[in-house]
């Protein structure tokens, strides 16, 4: 490589590294704001502001879903296997909503620590599988969410 080309190569490398460092510092400074949601543990630790619009994400606790037979109102526990937050929601739930499913709820925390949700979104993972496989895994207790729960409780 001629000296001239070498010099240009260094300039190109310094542009890329400079941009990466600058963006990296910005990301580091903003890291809490880039997270889409607070985990129930964050909320229990008081990291989430009260009476401000926030999002909470976690798993729907098994056996915690209580539906009001008169209306669309539904109550459920949201957990990250460390802490649990109670969510109250009055609206249409996404199709994927069920116990053990990961969801993200948007709403405001009240004084009692309940999340009054205005929107509930379902989160799914990258473990796609055909229904027959899912059934077999479910019977064996080897579904991804079951394994996650087992791991979390074992800790």
């Amino acid at each position: 490589m001629t000296p001239k080309r070498k010099q240009r190569l260094y300039i190109v490398l310094s542009i890329v590294i400079g941009a990466a460092v600058a963006v990296g510092l910005v990301m580091y400074a903003l890291s809490q704001n880039i997270n889409l949601f607070y985990s129930p543990a964050d909320i229990a630790a008081g990291k989430a502001p009260v009476e401000t619009r926030i999002r909470a994400g976690g798993m729907v606790v098994d056996g915690s879903v209580k539906r009001d037979p008169e209306s669309l109102r539904v109550e459920f526990g949201l957990t990250d296997y460390v802490s649990t937050v109670n969510v109250v929601y009055d609206g249409i739930l996404p199709d994927l909503f069920r116990e053990g499913q990961g969801i993200v709820a948007q709403g405001e925390l009240n004084e009692a620590g309940q999340l009054i949700a205005v929107e509930v979104l379902a989160k799914h993972d990258e473990n796609y599988m055909p229904p027959e496989v899912a059934e077999a895994l479910e019977k064996a207790g080897k579904m991804p969410e079951q394994l996650r729960a087992q791991e979390a409780y074992a800790e």
Partner: peptide, 17 residues
């Protein structure tokens, strides 16, 4: 970060899930 989007479908190092 915490995102709504699920993790990668394909990675070069691991078998797809």
């Amino acid at each position: 970060w915490n995102t709504l989007h699920q993790p990668a479908t394909f990675t070069l190092t691991e078998k797809p899930a």
